[in-house]
Structure formats: structure tokens, C-alpha cells
Nucleic acid binder design. Structure first.
Lengths: 193, 193
DNA sequence: GCCAAAGGTGGCACTGTGTGTCACGTAAGA
DNA sequence: TCTTACGTGACACACAGTGCCACCTTTGGC
């Protein structure tokens, strides 16, 4: 039923855009009442972005799977590589692309997407701190390192996703390239090394 | 009048929280109608986050003020250092702190804040690309470098702001420390170098 | 001093999202 | 067969945001 609603909604979003498609229109098109729609999704945004909720846990699992003594940056790169094209767990590449187009189109959806990324990052920062402790580093509350590295890794991943759209390289290579920018040459001016 | 509304609103937000404070309550407390409120602010969110709009332009100016041949990472660090505690242009440190607490409390505000940060970053990515061109680098659309570096710089700045709350060090030093994590040791596991 | 144009304001009606509540029907289980 | 539980539709409601109009005050020309 949820999948039915999603596919109906995606079609309507494609025709009229996200903002101009009312919940009423989606529910009616799917043959149910507005009230029932909200029993399947807590909000219109949730219908589009709900699948991203799972990604956070997957990333956390992927990071936990890396050895504690592996450098954090390497572990984060492996983590991103592990969930192929990242986005949504099941969903086809086409579906993912459709979702991305809708998100790109609407500021409020974009905001919700960024919020979910932010939640993931907080999860992973906590995990990164735990790793450090397990590796024997004394806990320092005012150390910006975990947050800086996790946040930077996400920034590189996002940059990788931007260029991955029109790239023929594999996701692993694309991520490695983006994260390599930081890895090899943080000083770099795009002109000279 | 806008300032009046903001201070009234901040008081109410402190008492009942952002979500549970209706526009009606703010307007009434400020002695005007709901309709008039929306003539001063296009939305309730805008009342809280509106001041951030200016920051993007300030950052762009600050980056443009740096020489084209300066390494991008250095230029970004100088840019962040230039706008002291970052946040809002005028506003006192107390006001900024009050705003941050409210934003932290509400997911929808947090989402709006992240969206505004994202818009700033896009502005700066474009500026970084221009710098590169001015410095004589051939334009490569699929180069993730500008987005990766700008995004990482923002991640470090955010990490700096997190620890800056309880730090006695200057903002410049705190930013330098957070950005130095990337600068010196992207490989770093928080345990060993 | 008088009148007209302009701008700020309140009131009202309306759309759309999201929630609480209740009543109905149907299917599963005793 | 009775009943319990669940999915559903149908309200009513709160709140954000918009469009429209009528009013009033201020400003400026005559």
C-alpha cells in the first residue's frame, strides 16, 4: 500500500511538481481518503524522504564493521563504498533518480533531506568517538576531530554524488576521488598543487 | 518593528517552545494582527532564520577579498575568521545564543538552518570555481574539488562552532584547529597519527 | 484649508497540512 | 454466532500562509 502510494505520488509530482500536488490528490488517485493517507505516511515529506531513515543505520553498521584501529578517514571511505550508490536500500536506480529530481525541485524537501543527512552524521560522530575510545584514546569533549572528519566525509560524498550523475566511473572510484581531494591535498588551490 | 517582533517572539519561544508558539500569539503580544505579522516576516521560520540570509553574501565578499592564487583551503579559513563568531552580522552574542537554542530545539528550524547553509555553500562553490578559472585552471565540470573543499570547510566550521561554545580560545584559533584536522591529518584515526 | 493619492493595517475568506475522535464495516478468533 | 480487533471514512479542528477589500492615517499638491 505504501509502495502504491509512492508510485502514484511520484507520477503526480512529475506532472505537477511536489508543492502543487496535494495530499488529497494523491490519496484520491490511489483510491483512498486523505485521512487514510496519513495512516501510511505521517506527512507528505515522509512519503518522499522516508526511505532515507534506513540509510543512517546502514552507514552505522558499515562503520562498525571496520576495525577500530583503521584510520577514521579510511573507514569512512569504506563505509560509503559499502552502500553502493548510497541513496535508498532497495529501490532501483531509476526510482532513486526520480526521488532526487523531486527533492532538488522543492526547497522544503531539500531542507528535510539535509536534516536527515545531519541526523546520520550525529549518529556517526558518536560512533567515531566510540571507536576512538575503543582504540584507547582518552575521551576529549572539546576535540573537533570526529565531527570535522565525519562532516568532511559527507561533504566529499555529496560532491561525489554530484559528479557521479554524469560519470562513467564506479561509485567506489568516484568517492575515492572526492575523498582523495582532502586526503592528498587539502591546501590545494584548484590551480596549482 | 521587525526587531520588536523578534524580541517578543524570542521571549515566547523561551517560555513555550517554537512549535507551541503560534503566530497569532506573537502578533497579539506585539500588539498587531496576525495579518500584519506576515507583512513583516514571510513566515514564522523567517523571523528566526532571516538574519542568516546576509551571512552568505558576507562570506562571498570575504572569499572574494582573498587573492586568487592563495590555496583555497587557506582562503576559506581566512573567510571564516573574517566574520568573527560567524552567525549574525549585528546581534549580540547573547541574542545569537538564544537563536541557536531555539533552532536546536526544533527539527523544522534545524532543517531550515541547514538549507540556508547549503545555499551559502553553493554560492561559495561557484565563487571557488571562478577563482580557479581566474588563476588559470581549465574549467572541468566533473571535478569534485571545489564542492568537496567548500563542504569540508563548512563541516570544520560547524565542528568549531560546536566546541567553541565551551572554549576559551578565540574564534580564529578554534576554526584553525578544526580546519587543521583536515589540513594536517586527514588519515588520522583519533587514536594514532 | 481641502482634497487626493499612497501606504500601513485589520478583517475575512480560503487553501492546505496535520491531528483527534467517532462510527461503521469486515474479517479473524473463541 | 458472538465478539474483539483492525482498517477505513467522515467529520471537526488547529495552525500556517495568501488574496482581497475596506478603512484610516499620513503626505503632498492645489
Amino acid at each position: 500500500m505504501q509502495g502504491e502510494l509512492i508510485s502514484v505520488a511520484q507520477r503526480l509530482f512529475g506532472e505537477h511538481g511536489y508543492e502543487d500536488t496535494t495530499v488529497d490528490a494523491i490519496a484520491t488517485a490511489a483510491g483512498m481518503s486523505r485521512r487514510s493517507f496519513f495512516r501510511y505516511f505521517s506527512s507528505k515529506e515522509e512519503l518522499v524522504l522516508g526511505k532515507y531513515e534506513l540509510v543512517g543505520e546502514q552507514l552505522q553498521d558499515a562503520l562498525q564493521a571496520r576495525p577500530d584501529d583503521e584510520p577514521l578517514w579510511d573507514a569512512l571511505q569504506a563505509m560509503f563504498a559499502a552502500i553502493s550508490g548510497k541513496a535508498v536500500p532497495d529501490a532501483s536506480a531509476q526510482t532513486v533518480h526520480a526521488i532526487e529530481r523531486v527533492v532538488e525541485e522543492s526547497p522544503s524537501l531539500r531542507a528535510g533531506y539535509l536534516y536527515r543527512l545531519d541526523v546520520m552524521q550525529r549518529l556517526l560522530v558518536a560512533e567515531a568517538r566510540d571507536r576512538a575510545v575503543r582504540a584507547g584514546v582518552p575521551y576529549a569533549e572539546d576535540d573537533p576531530t570526529p565531527e570535522a572528519l565525519v562532516g568532511s566525509a559527507f561533504a566529499c560524498m555529496t560532491a561525489a554524488r554530484t559528479v557521479a550523475a554524469s560519470a562513467e566511473a564506479s561509485w567506489e572510484d568516484t568517492v575515492a576521488r572526492a575523498m582523495g581531494v582532502i586526503r592528498h591535498d587539502p591546501y590545494r588551490n584548484t590551480s596549482r598543487r
